[in-house]
Amino acid sequence: MQAIFAIIAALIVVSAIGAISFRNLVHCALSLVVTFCGVAALYLQLGAPFAGWVQVLVYVGAVAILIVFAILLTRSDENKPEPIFGNNWKAGGVIGLLLFSVMVYAITRDGLDSTPLPAKPELTVREIGVDLMTQYVIPLETMALLLTTAAIGAVIIAIRLCNPESSADSDTHAKAAGSVEATH
């Protein structure tokens, strides 16, 4: 079990570093997909198959496609290599370090190593569904409403209300792709 965890963790870390350090944006996006798959594998190893497969379905199947579409529809010159460090990498580094230290503090203070692990719950998909429809129904419906609003909003931005010649075509296309993704 330790060995499997080590392999998955190494995969996640290496691909995450790749996602921020490749010079080509599409390579970064594909590296991020490997990270998503690694996180899904981690869920599977922890005995949460539902979360793992949903991770694959949503992140690899939809979010990655959204990222890729966004890259392709907004960048025209893909031969120009991107610099690895952005303009405000110092501020980003400070924020990242702060977040990391807060997390390290929280984890070590609680003493996760010393507390015994709780018994692994035998969760079936049915129980998750029942919980979603009873205990967590209001958050679920709120999220559904929010996503529908976002989808309708994207369609309204994308729709061509006046004569077709005057509108900017490339812009409309980008929004239309966004609306497709949002409903997904």
Partner: peptide
């Protein structure tokens, strides 16, 4: 016999889209 078999099937189906993008790009 997976408890979430249908979900697994669709997850696998959804991940093929990215391969087609990889082929095209």
């Amino acid at each position: 016999n997976m408890d979430a078999g249908l979900l697994f099937f669709f997850a696998m189906g959804a991940s093929t889209e990215l391969s087609i993008f990889m082929a095209g790009w």
